[in-house]
């Protein structure tokens, strides 16, 4: 583990360049460029507020938008992770460097994008009179945990896709199920009231359950369902990262042969 951190630190310039490359390529050939990172969450909020008003869906807009923007960070990472090794086959087969830098740079680039969306979200919440902020000082820890989860899953998906091309199709199904299992488009209370009590702690075995709930506690002063439950989500999120690293390192030597 220490050796891994050291090798990443040695190549931090490469990591940084790849993060920049990821961001640059995303908006290359677009006339608005980087503004899209700000524009898309703005449009997202506007569109949802219009249709929520028409459809009379029983969820407050700030709760919904928070859920969706947080979920998008994970969804983008997973979508990009399919190609973070395969799409860089030319680099992997021609040059030697710690391969973990590829998914890591991708997740970091998505983190930067998420941060920009987050700024938009924050401004929107500031401007919404009904919103009362909770313990904002907890946010960095929540973001860090989500980053760990995203990286962990991205590591698993990216190397699995090198060996099994079925990963892409499996992933899209898993993502859909995961989306509805997480309180993205419904508030926490709804999930807790519909599910029988003994199931509640299992709901928090889905790390996104605790993470989205934490964001809502910090940003919207949502009720805390219990620190112990949220802790389950956090432990699992960090475990996924360590499992991801272990699996990735085990499979990494074979990438050159497989690509």
């Amino acid at each position: 583990m220490i050796a891994l951190l050291k090798s990443i630190n040695e190549r931090r310039e490469l990591l940084q360049l790849l993060v920049v490359r990821n961001l640059k390529i995303r908006y290359k050939n677009t006339s608005l460029g980087f503004f899209w990172s700000l524009l898309s969450p703005i449009f997202l909020i506007v569109i949802y507020s219009v249709f929520l008003g028409i459809l009379k869906v029983p969820i407050p807009l700030p709760v919904l938008v928070t859920g969706i923007i947080v979920w998008q960070f994970l969804a983008m990472c997973l979508g990009d992770s399919l190609n973070s090794i395969l799409g860089n086959a030319n680099l992997v087969t021609k040059t030697a460097f710690p391969r973990i830098i590829l998914p890591l740079s991708m997740v970091k680039a998505n983190l930067i994008n998420f941060m920009l969306s987050f700024v938009v979200l924050f401004v929107y919440l500031l401007a919404t009179p009904s919103v009362e902020f909770g313990p904002l000082y907890m946010l960095p820890f929540v973001v860090l945990t989500q980053f760990a989860l995203c990286l962990g899953v991205a590591l698993l998906v990216s190397c699995s896709n090198v060996y099994f091309r079925d990963t892409e199709h499996i992933l899209s199904m898993v993502m859909l199920a995961w989306f509805f299992m997480s309180p993205v488009i419904y508030p926490l209370e709804l999930a807790l009231s519909k599910a029988p009590e003994f199931l509640h702690k299992f709901l928090f075995c889905n790390p996104m359950f605790g993470i989205i709930t934490s964001y809502r506690i910090c940003l919207l002063s949502d009720a805390n369902p219990g620190a112990a439950w949220i802790a389950i989500s956090y432990v699992i999120a960090w475990s996924v990262l360590f499992i991801g690293i272990a699996v990735f390192q085990k499979l990494e030597p074979g990438f050159g042969d497989e690509l």
């Binding site: 790849l18 490359r21 040059t95």
Partner: peptide, 9 residues
Amino acid sequence: VFLCGALMG
């Protein structure tokens, strides 16, 4: 060019 250099360490 800078990316290549970084790849080579």
